[in-house]
Design a protein around this nucleic acid. Sequence first.
DNA 1: CCGCATCCCATGTGATACTG
DNA 2: CAGTATCACATGGGATGCGG
Lengths: 213, 213
Amino acid sequence: MAARDYGQYSGITRAMELVGERWALLIVRDLLVGPRRYGELAAGLHRIPSNILAARLKELQAAGVIRRAPRSRVIVYELTPYGRELEPVVLALGAWGFKALDDPRPEQLITPESMTMDLRSAFRPDVALELPATAYAARLGSTELLIRVDGSSLDVRPGDGPVDLAFSSDAGIRHLISGELTPQHALDSGTIEVLRGHEHLLTRFATTFHLAA
Amino acid sequence: MAARDYGQYSGITRAMELVGERWALLIVRDLLVGPRRYGELAAGLHRIPSNILAARLKELQAAGVIRRAPRSRVIVYELTPYGRELEPVVLALGAWGFKALDDPRPEQLITPESMTMDLRSAFRPDVALELPATAYAARLGSTELLIRVDGSSLDVRPGDGPVDLAFSSDAGIRHLISGELTPQHALDSGTIEVLRGHEHLLTRFATTFHLAA
DNA sequence: CCGCATCCCATGTGATACTG
DNA sequence: CAGTATCACATGGGATGCGG
């Protein structure tokens, strides 16, 4: 149960002891989107065995990363302030791993939480600041997200609504975000289909969410 | 041998599949300091079993994170350009874990590589830019580092030399870096002993290397 | 000697079943 | 719904061997 230690006294080894075990940072990732119940975490990480989820939740509590909060008679897990300080770590990992994505295999799912954090990883606040506030609705597979960019702030949540640009896409959208695919090519190839709004807003999207190689 | 996957299509899960296994990011950390031979890696990560080190090196090569390079008739491992892009991840993890350090246990070692990366984690380029170029020599336990700050750039390497301030310290230096301890208190309590140079340069050190809580 | 490979055992993980 | 219990198995840890 105790996190095996590395026999070194350093910041990185300490971090690995606290959140380095399998699944731990994915739990943190999902909790960065918002507080979640046990069942919601299990659903978002659909391959995690329940005993492992239970074990990780205990370890992360002991490490001071998460806490159980009673919200209106149900138990939810949420990050502590210290746990929330893992956001730069998760975003950096997401940005790095995003570039190594290849075509999705059929059994690989996209959850609202994972897609939200991927968008946060790719978000460029400095670029967004120069652009007018814009709302997007994006659909990948079965997950629909409402993406609101206003100044340098980003808000992502599940669902749909009145937006400036609504589009659906397949996983090829990663090439748009990495700059390997122009918005026009993404449209021509059918990777992205605009449902509502002006196509030219896709360029704004691609500059707002961008991970250079 | 194949990294077990998480069944999700996202940047973070991809990253965890590539570098999420035990010891992997510590190997990356040490290689961020510079190319290393097999034996040097094994020495720097003194608790790693040799079979695990060999397995990780193969996996990291397959992942495109590291490569074997022949240097003057010996084999060294070094990061690929893509592997070097893990630096923000390692620094963020180091900065986060550093704050969770408590007193070192007797079996915990400080290696030149771990200390170098901890210093890089705490380095404030924007602060350093406003200060005159300064060279420090720091000793913690048996590791001696020569730390050169010039403008916004930082150079750390093992050894000693002519510096503006030379000091030795125990692990209590973490309180100086986190701001819980003033330079004066660090000196008074014996946590830090100035060997050469002016004591007031310790304040400069503490503002250059700082991790706010 | 360095750079691994092999062996064996302890531990962590995964799948499933089960309970308050 | 929120976990526990159980058991088979994969991985990690430590010692040792071995070829170039």
